[in-house]
């Protein structure tokens, strides 16, 4: 999949079973600066596979489409096809969030986290970059699974304080580092997570992008 030109021209498809949420997300994305064009939206994941939706750069996917079970199968198929998915869910459930990352989602966002995080997550996903909102940082910090990657003490501290304060500025001040360094730490953590569990083209693209950005060196992996 070709990279969209930087900034302008980014397209998205929104899958959510609530029309109001679809309309709200479309409005947030299209009124962002630069705007993100919503080419299709619908209550069923089919809109992401057919018509204009099939070519959208980013899929914004509600995990609970009507049924009680999260649509993890749909997420897996989308990620396996190399689609960049931002999961947008009602629930702040650590286990589900970690599972979504493992399946290849580029971001897990709770609906409580709002406009700024969603726009930022979609924009980052459009360029194969991860976005780690505070709730996801909490899930990563509280991860006790056996296969979790080894994080440095500084990385853990960044995760925890970003989760606690929701302010990168604050974390930077507390730890005596630049706000951009907070971002690099968060991205490096996500690169480590992209290397565990099931393979997905989206995870490989995330790692490749991090190498391109100079965040990690190829021989460190």
């Amino acid at each position: 999949m070709a990279f969209p030109p930087d900034g302008a021209g980014l397209t998205a498809v929104v899958v959510d079973d609530h029309p109001a949420v679809r309309a709200g997300v479309a409005h947030w994305l299209s009124s962002a600066d630069p705007p993100i064009r919503v080419v299709a939206s619908g209550e069923d994941v089919r809109v992401a596979w057919l018509g204009e939706g099939a070519d959208a750069d980013v899929v914004v996917l509600d995990l609970h489409l009507g049924g009680p079970t999260p649509a993890l199968g749909d997420l897996r198929r989308l990620a396996a096809a190399g689609r960049r998915v931002v999961v947008y869910s009602m629930r702040a459930d650590d286990a589900t969030a970690l599972q979504c990352l493992e399946l290849g989602a580029l971001c897990y966002l709770t609906k409580a986290e709002g406009e700024d995080h969603l726009v930022e997550a979609v924009r980052a996903a459009g360029h194969d970059r991860p976005h780690t909102p505070p709730s996801l940082a909490g899930a990563l910090a509280g991860d006790r699974s056996d296969q979790r990657p080894a994080l440095s003490a500084r990385e853990v501290e960044v995760l925890v304080e970003w989760f606690q304060s929701e302010s990168k500025d604050f974390v930077a001040h507390r730890l005596g580092i630049a706000p951009t360094t907070v971002n690099s730490h968060l991205e490096r953590i996500r690169v480590k997570y992209a290397q565990i569990g099931r393979d997905a083209p989206t995870k490989a693209a995330l790692v490749a992008r991090a190498i391109q950005d100079g965040l990690v060196a190829a021989h460190d992996l």
């Binding site: 650590d94 409580a112 909490g138 899930a139 910090a141 509280g142 991860d143 006790r144 989760f163």
Partner: peptide, 8 residues
């Protein structure tokens, strides 16, 4: 007030 809980 917002409350966030993470970890088992």
């Amino acid at each position: 007030v917002s409350l966030a809980v993470s970890g088992d």
